[in-house]
Write a protein that binds this DNA or RNA. Sequence first.
DNA 1: GCCCGCTATAAGCGTTCCTGATGGACGATG
DNA 2: CATCGTCCATCAGGAACGCTTATAGCGGGC
Lengths: 293, 293
Amino acid sequence: MDPHLLRTYVTVARLASFSEAARELGYTQSAVSQHIAALEADLALPLLTRRPVAPTPAGERLLEHAGALLLRLDAARADLDRFAAAPRATLSVAASPLALHARTLAALPATGVTLRALPREAVPAAVATGEADAGLVDGIAAPSDPLRLPDVAPLAATGVAEEPLAVVLPTTHPLAGRSGLRLDDLVDARWLDAPAAGLPLDRLRGAHGGPAGRGFRTALRYEGTDTRTLAALAAAGHGLALLPAPVAADVSGATAVPLIAPRLVHRTELLLPAASRAEPTGPVAEFTRRLKS
Amino acid sequence: MDPHLLRTYVTVARLASFSEAARELGYTQSAVSQHIAALEADLALPLLTRRPVAPTPAGERLLEHAGALLLRLDAARADLDRFAAAPRATLSVAASPLALHARTLAALPATGVTLRALPREAVPAAVATGEADAGLVDGIAAPSDPLRLPDVAPLAATGVAEEPLAVVLPTTHPLAGRSGLRLDDLVDARWLDAPAAGLPLDRLRGAHGGPAGRGFRTALRYEGTDTRTLAALAAAGHGLALLPAPVAADVSGATAVPLIAPRLVHRTELLLPAASRAEPTGPVAEFTRRLKS
DNA sequence: GCCCGCTATAAGCGTTCCTGATGGACGATG
DNA sequence: CATCGTCCATCAGGAACGCTTATAGCGGGC
């Protein structure tokens, strides 16, 4: 299970073509064919169906492993490269959309910053592989509990902000007059499913609010990253949205009601490669210091 | 960064010798020397000091990455092998000591079981690499919250038991008469540090009970795995011990007082390789079914 | 000061791995 | 239904890699 073989395997699976993968990887088609054959021989399992080229069930599982493995490998290389690299004058930050708010934006240095918005899951990977010097992720957690992040590589996470959560309802909604909402009040409600723009609802399920099996019923799925659109959808009655209270309060044409039970908060964390802990100077350290003060 | 090179690197680092590592790996000393040279050239970093052979700071970091990487690789291979392997009649279970209690033991099949007690951190790895068919881990968590486990590989975790926590005090202790204890009552207390036999105290720190910087003061460190010894140490006044309430209640010569704040429980989870989800029959499925019912 | 053990380097050789060419299978097209 | 085109599998040759054997260089112990 050579990483080279895994790399060509995931490429073939992604492109659904041996020849295409060969072009992308700079190999001949023959080499790619031999790579796949070697993998299948090694594991004694068929990994791909040919014509059309698609992963078998075993291949599907290998894809999960291979993805994580190659990511981990890139992360290791990037981490070690940082040891040798000269400190740079620029700062590249990867952040999930809702992690960008007054508190974090204020901490950014005045010049030399590249800010990249990414889906929540991609932020740890970006920091681990060195694509970003630092990351900002947000999520739902119990007060002063750390977020549950996929540990692709040793990363140091520090909490930088916590704020209440609020439910965004149409002004005409029967519960819009409440001063606070319990999740139990909303078990029958329809939610907006907006993994990129909003908050991951599945963190609520199971842990609190009833038996683990009960999911959240979703009315509409929004795949963009724009929070204003999400709020507008909620205002238009397409479903309820869960947002950090400061964001929810700004929504026009809708009412924001704080979530009071279960006791959960919107939390933002700073992600750094564990190696840079010791680094005393440079834009990363500057950013870190301003976030913590 | 070939896995073979990483493998020899970690071996050299562990044995602090090129020649020893060569013997263990079945290479010549020359090959090992070339492996290390290749790694150092690739990363453009010195990884080991020679005479004595010891990792440099960069080498220390590589060790962390390499360990996780090789583990992940073994896990992937084991997971894929399960696809091809014929279902077996035996069941091998890896468990942390406190995960073994009436509820879990009752679910074990009558015959063909190998039960291996391991330190808490090693259980996920054992399941991932296929050394065990299933795992039982315990830990501290908020009620109906999942445990925080290192994700070495895609594993499926299911809660199987939760029970209150109790503090074990000498009968003469001023707080021994209480019917319940708050963690705040105990900030100044001395604790027994028993990572193998007891519960990991650091889960308490930070999340609850005050500023994150405040640690737990430990009086005595016990490195064995025997819970009775731990209890005896607590009874003898060497420090306080935190245990699941049913276990703590059985301690003679000491008093067990339930922990009532923060609201935390002792939780046991079943760990299965994510692949075996679909497996409908066999001893693993049998064990799973009996645990869940 | 000599010797022993350890790591580094050099040369040789077997194996691996990639390329280029060719064969065979499937699907599209008329 | 025949033909063509595309795509993957296979084969043979050559370059490159990686391991072994042999030897040099360096330190520490006696």
